[in-house]
Amino acid sequence: MSILSDIAASLQRGEDDEVASLVRQALDDGQDAVAILHGGLIAGMGVVGEQFREREIFLPDVLLAARAMYAGLALLKPLLAKDGVPTAGTVVIGSVRGDLHDIGKNLVGIMLAGAGFDVVDLGSDVAPERFVDAACDHGASVIGLSALLTTTMPVMKDVVELVRARGLQDRIKIIVGGAAVSDAWARQIGADAYGYDAASAVERVRALARTPA
């Protein structure tokens, strides 16, 4: 096996120290940073993502792999051109105004970060204006709204309408989730997607982030 294959395999096992050590060794051997990034780290994460979609591995396995990827990436970043550092995009998340429940939202945040997104977590009880302002400030292409309570679900609609009122609906997509939320609800309020769990949320966000503005 080549050292790039070793890096990918080690990443899939979630061995962060080992990945860092192998990346260091590859650099010492004269390997190109971009080649290590694509042939080792991104290749490894690709397998992990596929296994996760097929339910062969589970959430902690993905998080461990992501941590291992960042351990390697930290060594490569200074050597990569600024636009060579991969990012899946920026997502603003939060529980909507009046809702203090944040376990599901936190899980989605962890998974998004693991999948390579920059996550701006606004916490719970977040007003519609803060979601939209933060998305603009951070250049986010997706806002993730969480609500556990049927009484707070209507706030999701307020966020959707605010994005439209500001004319941002082509640039900022909205995904909703939470115990009482459903696909039908998402369609009813005009949200762009619904995630029924953290894994599906990542898939949907990935698709939204790819949607051309």
């Binding site: 979630g14 959430l59 902690p60 998080l63 461990l64 941590r67 936190n106 899980l107 962890i110």
Partner: peptide, 14 residues
């Protein structure tokens, strides 16, 4: 860490 999903303790005993 805000969660224990990948903590050593979790991995050891899950």
């Amino acid at each position: 860490e805000k969660h224990l999903l990948i903590a050593k303790h979790t991995r050891r005993h899950l």
